[in-house]
C-alpha cells in the first residue's frame, strides 16, 4: 500500500502515480456527484430565499431531524423494513413456484395464468381497507399488500424466463438422457435467471410502495404512519426525513438485489448504472 494524500504533508507535487484518495474519489459514481450538487442548490436556495420550514425545509434542517429524532425514526423504519422484506420474501415464495407450475402444467397455464394477469387491473390500494378489516391493525395486512403488489412481476418474469429455453435446448437435454429434474436445474432455471431477477428488482420497488401505502391506510407504526402524523402536525421537516428513509430502504434493497444478480449471473454483462468501483 502506498501512502495516501492525507498523510502527505509537504508541498511537493504528488507524482502522477494514482494515489488511493484520488482513486476513491474517482470511484464515486457520477450520479452521487449530481445528487450532491442538487442538494447544495436546494440548501442555498432555501437559505438565500428564506423559505419557511413549513413549506420547504433546508437539507441541513432535515439532517438535524435525523440527529434529534433517530429514536423515533429508527424503530419505525425497522417496522417498515420488516414489512417490506417479509412481504417480498412471501412474494418470491409464492411467485416462483407458481411460475414453475404455470410453465409445466398446461392446465395451470390455461386456468390460472389469465386470472393472475386479469387480477392486476384490480387496484391494490382499493383492497387495502378490506384487508384491514380482515387482518386487523398490525403487520399482517401490510405484508399481504406487499405480497399482492410484488408477486405479479415475479410471476410474469419467471414464466417468461422459464419459457425462454429454445426447443433445441430441450432437445439437447433429452438427447443426453436428462431427466425432467435435470432439465429444470441444469437448463431451464439458469436460462430463466436473468428474467427472474428482472422481476425481483421490479418487485423490490413495488414492495416499498406497498408497505408505505398500507401504512397510510391504517397503522400505528412505520414510516408511512410517521409521514401522516408529521403531516397532521405541519412538520414538513420530519415528513422529509421519513421520505428519505423510505427512499434509502428502497435503494438499498434494489442495490442488494443487483449484487445478488451479479453473484448468481456472473455471465451476464455487468450493468453500469452505478459505475464500476
Amino acid at each position: 500500500m502506498t501512502t495516501t494524500i492525507a498523510e502527505t504533508t509537504d508541498d511537493t507535487v504528488i507524482v502522477p502515480k494514482p494515489n488511493m484518495l484520488l482513486r476513491a474519489l474517482m470511484a464515486v459514481p457520477p450520479a452521487l456527484w449530481t445528487l450532491l450538487v442538487l442538494i447544495s442548490i436546494w440548501e442555498l436556495s432555501v437559505q438565500i430565499g428564506k423559505v419557511p420550514a413549513y413549506i420547504l425545509p433546508a437539507p441541513s434542517a432535515i439532517g438535524a431531524v435525523f440527529f434529534n429524532y433517530w429514536h423515533r425514526l429508527l424503530p419505525n423504519a425497522l417496522v417498515t423494513l420488516s414489512e417490506v422484506l417479509i412481504g417480498f420474501i412471501g412474494a418470491v415464495v409464492v411467485g416462483v413456484p407458481l411460475a414453475v407450475m404455470i410453465v409445466y402444467s398446461r392446465a395451470m397455464e390455461k386456468a390460472v395464468y389469465p386470472l393472475i394477469v386479469a387480477s392486476q387491473t384490480v387496484p391494490k390500494v382499493a383492497i387495502a381497507p378490506l384487508l384491514l378489516t380482515w387482518f386487523g391493525y398490525g403487520m399482517t395486512p401490510k405484508i399481504v399488500i406487499v405480497i399482492l403488489l410484488a408477486f405479479f412481476p415475479i410471476v410474469i418474469n419467471s414464466v417468461m424466463g422459464l419459457k425462454s429455453s429454445s426447443r433445441e435446448m430441450i432437445y439437447l437435454a433429452r438427447s443426453m438422457g436428462a431427466s425432467g429434474l435435470q432439465t429444470f436445474w441444469k437448463f431451464r432455471l439458469p436460462q430463466a435467471l436473468p428474467s427472474i431477477f428482472a422481476g425481483l428488482k421490479l418487485a423490490t420497488v413495488l414492495s416499498v410502495i406497498g408497505a408505505v401505502v398500507a401504512e397510510f391506510i391504517g397503522a400505528d407504526k412505520g414510516l408511512g404512519y410517521l409521514i401522516l402524523i408529521a403531516g397532521a402536525n405541519f412538520d414538513i421537516t420530519r415528513q422529509f426525513a421519513s421520505i428519505i428513509l423510505i427512499t434509502l430502504i428502497g435503494v438499498l434493497f434494489f442495490v442488494t438485489l443487483e449484487q445478488m444478480e451479479r453473484f448468481f449471473i456472473p455471465w451476464k454483462a455487468r450493468s453500469n448504472i452505478a459505475g464500476e468501483g
Binding site: 439437447l172 438427447s175 438422457g177 439458469p190 435467471l193 455471465w267
Partner: peptide, 17 residues
C-alpha cells in the same frame, strides 16, 4: 430419445452461463 448419439444443431445451443 437415443441417448447414445451425439447431436449438433444449426444453432450452437451453448449454455450462456
Amino acid at each position: 430419445p437415443n441417448a447414445d448419439a451425439g447431436i449438433v444443431f444449426q444453432q450452437d445451443v451453448l449454455l450462456e452461463w
